[in-house]
């Protein structure tokens, strides 16, 4: 088993929590893992990205080669497209559709959508809305993780255990809210992948 994942978004959106949950689950499954993070300058509202590599064999490079990513998981549509050169020919893009417009020359939303939909394998979801409906507006990242879950090759139950572990110190209510967002995302993705 080997999954190379690029996580992306805008500083402050919480992509690192997604990586932490996947990491937790991967370790519980006895897999190897490497995760290159961005710290520092890039966090103040700029683009952020993390390379997450999971494998049953030894992983050497902290960076994923171009054309090597099985998945791009993004909380923001333009940020998903930024990393296309890293996506494998048959790779999947899972992205939230709500744009973060904090620059004057942000591209036209319809153009973004068109490019995303032209990709061979894509799951688009309104992660913010799903999180809100699940009663946890701040859990868009967990809704996105849920949408990614069917493609990860890791049991959903193992990921849920990861969510429990990571949010445990914030109390049971926070854990349940994040699990609800996760499950909402999961169902959305299942519907889209069945088609």
């Amino acid at each position: 088993m080997k999954k190379d994942i690029i996580l992306s978004g805008v500083g402050g959106q919480g992509i690192l929590s997604i990586a932490t949950v996947i990491g937790h689950a991967a370790l519980a499954e006895g897999l190897q893992l490497k995760q290159a993070e961005v710290h520092g300058m890039s966090q103040r509202g700029g683009d952020v990205q993390s390379h997450l590599r999971i494998s049953s064999r030894e992983i050497r490079s902290d960076l994923i080669p171009r054309g090597g990513a099985d998945l791009i998981v993004s909380l923001e549509p333009m940020e998903a497209l930024r990393y296309l050169p890293w996506l494998a020919a048959e790779g999947w893009v899972v992205t939230g559709t709500t744009p973060v417009v904090n620059i004057p020359n942000y591209p036209d939303e319809a153009d973004l959508k068109r490019e995303l939909q032209a990709l061979p394998h894509v799951i688009l979801l309104d992660a913010e809305a799903l999180a809100r409906e699940a009663g946890s507006p701040r859990s868009a990242n967990m809704a996105l993780l849920g949408a990614t879950a069917p493609l990860l090759g890791i049991e959903a139950g193992q990921l849920e255990a990861g969510i429990r572990a990571i949010f445990a110190r914030k109390g049971e209510a926070v854990v349940e809210a994040n699990l609800a967002a996760f499950r909402a995302g999961y169902q959305t993705a299942q519907k889209q992948t069945e088609r």
Binding site: V10, G45, G46, D47, R66, G67, M78, E79, L81, R82, L84, P85, W86, L87, A88, A89, N102, I103, N105, Y106, P107, D108, D111, L112, E115, L119
Partner: peptide, 12 residues
């Protein structure tokens, strides 16, 4: 083999 870079993405 890789996907081409998107032409509409701008720096942030």
């Amino acid at each position: 083999r890789a996907h081409a870079a998107s032409e509409i993405v701008v720096p942030r």
